[in-house]
């Protein structure tokens, strides 16, 4: 069992600790009637290979994306999804998953677009649960359908589109690029003929600070770092100010949802938005400014 070197979540100095729960908390509350545990992974084989007993799966591609357009599900599809999962507006939804919760934070972010704020991330994600030797099952749970009202998706509060990002750049706004340093610089790090991140141009959005998403995580335990260490990275080292809006981006918006979660919930930045168009849009757009060192 991997022990945590950090104090309890409530004692780590986070601005909104209620958005993070421990594996102990999940073990204790996973069967509560008003709690729903959801696993979101990049790897589609993980959930069926074993998951937390009682956990349902939310598949990013199948459940959260529009099947035709590059966009997220619409209000009726979201309603159908949460009702299938037995979720009501009062259900506390706990997300966890692979990749140190990349996809869990992505799913939480999409739920937030529909106003479901009663949600949290399981600190350490799937790998922490597994490493702690906690029970896993292949049994797929079932739920009686719930009732959830139709909610219009809000694309302004937590999400930002390309033209707004362009205005943000022109206004010298704060951006954080959470991709790898090699992606940030536009350096090609692949064998001949290997595709370059799905974009025609490499580099980064002008003015962006490079803070790879994984810096917010303890690589040994997968847990989020305490607030003082996060502040040291984002505020002291990179100079990001909570007094002005920050836009986070990566390649398609999944890694940046992780940093969105860190800045908004753990550090309490009031204005953080995720640019899900990210580099696959920006690096393919005609005429937008690009910076390369």
């Amino acid at each position: 069992m991997t022990s945590s070197p950090y104090p309890a979540i409530a004692e780590r100095g986070y601005a909104h600790p209620e958005f993070l729960v421990s594996t102990d908390w999940v073990a204790e509350h996973k069967d509560d009637a008003n709690v729903r545990i959801l696993e979101s992974n990049e790897d589609p084989l993980l959930y069926p290979s074993g998951h937390i007993p009682g956990a349902f799966e939310v598949d990013w591609t199948r459940d959260l994306n529009d099947p035709i357009r590059r966009d997220y599900l619409d209000r009726s599809a979201f309603q159908a999804l949460v009702e299938r999962l037995g979720i009501t507006p009062n259900t506390r939804v706990i997300f966890y998953g692979d990749k140190n919760n990349w996809w869990a934070t992505y799913s939480l972010w999409v739920f937030r677009l529909f106003g479901h704020t009663n949600a949290a991330i399981m600190d350490g994600g799937r790998i922490k649960w597994v490493n702690e030797g906690r029970p896993m099952t292949k049994e797929i749970p079932s739920s009686a359908p719930s009732s959830y009202p139709v909610v219009e998706r809000d694309d302004q509060t937590e999400r930002v589109m390309r033209d707004e990002v362009l205005n943000h750049v022109r206004a010298n706004g704060q951006l954080v690029d959470v991709r790898s340093p090699q992606e940030f610089t536009g350096e090609r790090m692949h064998m001949p003929d290997y595709p370059n991140e799905g974009a025609l141009r490499g580099g980064h959005i002008p003015g962006a600070k490079s803070v790879p998403w994984a810096r917010a995580i303890d690589p040994e335990t997968g847990e989020f770092l305490p607030a003082d260490r996060l502040k040291a990275i984002y505020q002291e080292e990179q100079g990001l100010s909570p007094d002005r809006e920050v836009i986070a981006y990566c390649r398609i918006g999944e890694r940046s949802s992780h940093t969105w979660f860190v800045l908004k919930h753990l550090l309490g930045f009031p204005q953080v938005r995720n640019y899900d168009g990210s580099w696959t849009e920006w690096g393919n757009s005609v005429g937008v400014p690009i910076e390369r060192p």
Partner: peptide
């Protein structure tokens, strides 16, 4: 093998294994 519903990153990784 996996169908067409993988994420972009997962597609790139698995196709990378074939290419490599």
């Amino acid at each position: 093998v996996f169908g067409r519903t993988l994420s972009m990153g997962k597609n790139m990784g698995l196709m990378g294994m074939v290419r490599m």
